[in-house]
Design a protein around this nucleic acid. Structure first.
Lengths: 362, 362
DNA sequence: CCCCGTCGTGGAAACGTTTCCACTTTCACC
DNA sequence: GGTGAAAGTGGAAACGTTTCCACGACGGGG
């Protein structure tokens, strides 16, 4: 319990050799005799020697740390992904510095400045809009290796891991179509601030267009309490034939179900609701939420693996978007479109496909 | 866009002065004339100079980084707290290195080793069991300032921020008692691995003992699918008069509601269910979950503030447990105990107290 | 007019590491 | 028994910063 920690010098002294030898032995980074090897290891053990990472990083110019920037940890989707990054990084001896930007461009910028000041070796991030993100531009300018998650950037010169939001939304659209939903609406929060929402709406609308149907209504709502109810009332006034809602994420989908109930409509008897993300709680509620289950955790760990491998080879992660498999999970909140409103009861209820398991991360 | 970043030396050269002067000016850490002050600032601006944190930390022996260790980010409770830590830390110029231990003692240890190797200035953590946590002991031995969150350690020589789990559970117990629930059970996952669960059971049982009632049944369940159903079936066989369940956290409470439904019992008509934590989704589901709303975010930021202040004064955070206010949120999942089972329908339904708002973090 | 604070300044040492380089030592081989 | 290569070694420089200290200039009071 010395007042200050032992340094490589102390080890050298105790082992009776030079510090260079100690460094070589402890790092396996050069020739060393069996004799000195043993002495050094014994000395290090006895002193409980640990490298000082500052000295190390200062000399080697790498921090063994990767920065993470996400909009928020309150959305379980990002929390899962961060956990994935952290675990995958730990396996390779990398640490994670965490920042969050709360969907705010300015905060994104200052957070990135912090990360860069800490000399992170690379960054994994989700931004509001890849095309005009300041944070992303900073990374490019400073030539810091990075990998996007969740975002699916349009320009192909950046590395990214995500799911194909457009395709996923197409599948939702197709399912709804097959179940007879001819009039559907898309509900989103902060539509303007999320490229994912936009992609999802696009894929969804595409299917409806393909079948010659009217473009789904777009409901952009606020977090303000009551806002959702008002939007839904408006919707049912302008489009009373609406039989399905597609929400841009699961939390919002749950909020929709609650709002519908307060308007005297029940799910799925009167209206079907589909979410997006596949958060854990979606399977616990009643009715079970129909949703697109995305591999958030795997997204994080995959991105971390890509980044770490690139760092070890002293290069950039491979450019281009990697799309991970997702899965349509048919919950109880989705059913056949009610043909006609018969006394507020559902007409038929198809045998719901059993909720399939997510495939394990690999 | 030079190949390597400008150093303090480059700034000194451009400004025509020594590096000591540059350091003094940029850190406001010593006398300097107006003239040199201006020249240095101009030079730093022109070169877009940023301090190298490694050199800085190596010399000053502080990293301006705090380590965080939590069981998992998948539980929104911890995600919120981590977010709180991160935001509060950022305000004071501190960064956060994140690790998670997955409720595993061994992982806890290695995670702590990583944090210590990175020379974090302090640590904020939640451990499985404060009394025999290796990680916690390491912190004490190495004299690294730290602050627990969520945990409520029995020994008073450690700093901690949390809620009074025992008292909160007493309140739940009292509410249940007042609503006529004479036979209740406590449901927990990994009871042995969480001191919080134990505290909650203790407070709950205490109230029942006080009223001369039988000690609530303790159901310890697994995450394995189906396990909860089996446990509940057993419960209703041994204690058919059970009218209420108190779950050790909200996710589990939701799982209970679902399991009960699959057993043909409805909530709250047949059985009342109360959770713990107050996660956001608890308010969205039907029935709204009765729960203890805890200020997770505030817990994180409060701990961060304590720790940062202590670090700045070069001392340890104040020992003792700080208990933050919590709140009983009376959701729809809790109602009067059914007097007798009359045709599977509830007897009465009291006007549910409106779900009160959480007071904002302060 | 000299002395002595005060102020601003820059050289240099230190923080703990990696790594280059030059120096032994060893040993196989002719 | 010389020669050469190969293997092991430690001194020392460098990484970028903070900070101690010594030095010169400058001014006010005796």
């Amino acid at each position: 319990m010395s007042i200050s920690k032992p340094t490589i010098k102390d080890v050298a002294e105790l082992a009776g050799c030079g510090i260079a030898t100690v460094s070589r032995v402890l790092n396996n980074s050069g020739p060393s005799s069996l004799a000195s090897r043993e002495k050094v290891l014994a000395a290090a053990e006895e002193l409980d020697f640990k490298f000082n990472e500052f000295g190390r990083s200062l000399k080697s110019r790498r921090s063994k740390t990767i920065g993470v920037l996400v909009p928020t940890l309150c959305n379980p989707v990002f929390a899962d992904a961060v956990q994935g990054v952290q675990q995958a990084a730990a396996v390779h001896g990398y640490d994670v510095i965490l920042t969050s930007a709360n969907y705010d461009q300015e905060t994104e910028k200052t957070a990135m400045e912090t990360l860069l000041a800490k000399q992170v070796d690379g960054v994994i991030l989700t931004v509001s809009s890849p095309t005009n993100s300041i944070a992303l531009r900073m990374l490019k300018e400073k030539h810091v290796p990075h990998c996007l998650i969740f975002n699916q950037p349009k320009d192909a010169d950046v590395s990214a891991v995500g799911v194909d939001n457009v395709e996923a939304a197409r599948i939702v659209g197709q399912k709804l179509f097959e179940l007879g939903h001819r009039d559907a609406a898309f509900v989103a929060v902060q539509f303007a601030k999320s490229d994912r929402s936009a992609d999802r709406y696009r894929g969804f609308a595409e299917i409806y267009a393909k079948h010659g149907l009217r473009e789904p209504e777009l409901l952009e709502v606020d977090y303000a309490p009551g806002d959702l109810e008002i939007a839904l009332v408006n919707l049912f006034e302008t489009s009373p034939s609406t039989t399905a809602l597609f929400a841009s994420n699961d939390m919002l989908a749950l909020a929709c179900i609650r709002a519908l109930r307060s308007l005297g409509k029940s799910v799925p008897e009167d209206i079907s609701v589909v979410g997006f993300d596949g958060i854990a709680v979606a399977d616990l509620v009643h009715p079970k939420l129909a949703t697109i289950a995305t591999p958030c955790h795997a997204m994080g760990s995959k991105a971390a693996q890509l980044l770490v491998k690139a760092l070890q080879n002293n290069e950039k992660p491979p450019t281009g978007v990697i799309s991970l498999p997702f899965e349509f999970r048919c919950g109880e909140s989705l059913t056949l479109a009610a043909k006609k409103k018969v006394a507020g009861r559902a007409v038929t209820r198809p045998a719901a496909a059993p909720a399939t398991q997510m495939q394990p991360n690999k």
